[in-house]
Design a protein around this nucleic acid. Structure first.
Length: 445
RNA sequence: GGCCCUAUCGUCUAGUGGUUAGGACAGCACGUUUUCAAUGUGUUAACCCGGGUUCGAUUCCCGGUAGGGUCACCA
């Protein structure tokens, strides 16, 4: 029998990282074993299900590089459920119950309930071993509102049987749903799939990962500039260790190494810091041709308040490579003013110009020397060129004493990339102007 | 609360009836052609508790504790 698994998201919200994780685990298992994947939109809740959410789930899963072989919507399968429910009633395994509505107290409503034989059910979970439940406490639980209006458990069981699902791989929040579903399965005469329940990802405080505790929407990670491979890799690695022990794995490598049995048994905390590290690992693997256009785009949209200069932007992009872990770090850098000085002359405080313990006169002398060196440079020069023009002098006079003031007058910041790089980006004229401004500020301080 | 599940550094984890309990992220220290970043080196830090079983338990068993899940006419 060939392996078939399912992605059964409920389109009642945007694609959650938990949805992605469910898809990843199922995907890896299916691909490893030459199986097929069924995408099944579980939209039986007419009030909460929205096309918009379904579209988002599909979009984000595709973005992560995941796909499927067949696509279904439960809302389009009403006839199949109707027959199943009708048959169960006909066989006396379910019955229509007239009772007070739970949704609208005071009103009477019809509910279809399964006659629970009240047995003890034991099933084998690939991740956790045998699990036993006493189903008497479940009572005659509801399986439909009407013959043409199935509830979750019935729809799942009917579909899994109808679609030939061999392995049900899902989060452990479904463990306690399993005995209920097995009861329906048995009433229907369907066969039991293999079950595997993996633990859920947790927030930093070990509670269930939720909107209140941080970002859970895949699209928000995407918008923040995480790379799809990084998020995919991180989500897969959180709760699974491949036999090789490698942390950075391509989708292909993950498939090759995947075994359901290697899924962890305890819940793991979703850690954004570690995700950032994964992302950086993937970011540094990008070629310049891949990195540059995207970095340029982020830079441009982060710089609306500044005088934009395309050629300056192009020059600073290589330096961005080692300063960011995620694309949106460019935005952060810009908003904190750490890129401003490339585009606009900084405001200088005379007192900040000399390196500590170096007097004003000495600092002035160094800056004056730098002016004379700059004057002999061509209009455009590389960081290496200006560096070699100044290096011997700086070494003789004290590198800090010479280079700190230079760096400060160019950037106006206590922290910045090195002065040679900044000078090479802004060019001779601008550099000279800033150094001269620095000398004036120094003397008037 | 009932039922089910889980338990190794702050976090992700490897691992074993006898180990100096290993790695990664984060942290810290030092180095690295001034600062920041990047990078290199080093380093702090863990077997939840109590009983057993055993010559010996982090590892096996039981109990406790803590955490998670679930108890719908949601999925």
């Amino acid at each position: 029998m060939s392996i078939r698994v399912r992605f059964p998201p409920s389109p009642t919200g945007y694609c959650h990282v938990g949805t992605a994780r469910m898809a990843i685990v199922n995907y890896l298992f299916a691909k490893k074993n030459g199986g097929q994947i069924v995408f099944r939109s579980e939209d039986t809740d007419k009030e909460r299900s929205k096309k918009e959410f379904e579209a988002d789930i599909i979009e984000q899963l595709h973005w992560l590089g995941l796909g499927w072989d067949e696509f279904y919507r439960q809302s389009e399968r009403t006839e199949i459920y109707r027959k199943a429910i009708h048959d169960l009633i006909g066989e006396g395994k379910a019955y229509v119950s007239e009772e007070e509505s739970k949704k609208e107290p005071g009103k009477m409503a019809q509910v279809i309930r399964l006659k629970n034989p009240g047995r003890t059910i034991t099933f084998t979970d690939v991740v956790r071993g045998d699990i036993t439940f006493d189903t008497t406490e479940l009572g005659d639980f509801a399986i439909a509102r009407a013959e043409d209006d199935p509830l979750y458990h019935l729809a799942v069981v009917v579909d899994d049987a109808d679609m030939g699902i061999t392995h049900v791989i899902r989060g452990e929040d479904h463990i306690s749903n399993t005995p209920r579903q097995i009861l329906i399965q048995e009433a229907l005469g369907a066969s039991r799939p293999v079950y595997a329940h993996y633990p859920l990802h947790l927030s930093a405080d070990r509670s269930k990962l939720s909107k209140r505790k941080g970002d859970v929407a895949v699209r928000s990670y995407r918008e923040k500039g995480f790379l799809s491979q990084a998020l995919l890799n991180y989500l897969a690695a959180l709760g699974w260790t491949p036999p090789s022990g490698k942390e950075i794995l391509s989708l292909t490598e993950m498939i090759a190494e995947f075994k359901l049995e290697d899924l962890h048994k305890s819940g793991a905390v979703f850690d954004t810091e570690k995700l950032r590290w994964f992302n950086r690992e993937y970011l540094v693997q990008l070629s310049d041709d891949e990195f540059t256009p995207i970095a340029m785009e982020w830079l441009k949209k982060s710089h609306t308040h500044l005088s934009w200069n395309e050629s300056i932007a192009a020059k600073i992009i290589p330096s961005l490579r080692e300063r960011i872990s995620v694309w949106s770090d460019i935005e952060t850098l810009a908003s904190e003013g750490d890129l401003d000085y490339f585009f606009t002359a900084p405001t200088l405080y005379g007192k900040s110009i000399p390196m500590k313990k170096i007097d004003i006169e000495t600092t002035q002398r160094h800056l004056q020397h730098i002016v004379s060196v700059l004057q002999n440079m061509p209009a455009q020069f590389s960081a290496e060129e200006i560096k070699s023009a100044l290096w011997d002098y700086a070494t003789t006079e004290g590198r800090g004493a010479v280079l700190w003031p230079l760096r400060y007058v160019l950037s106006g910041k206590d922290k910045s990339p090195d002065p040679f790089f900044i000078a090479s980006v802004i060019g001779k004229d601008e550099a000279l102007e800033r150094v001269n401004t620095g000398i004036s500020a120094l003397l008037s301080s």
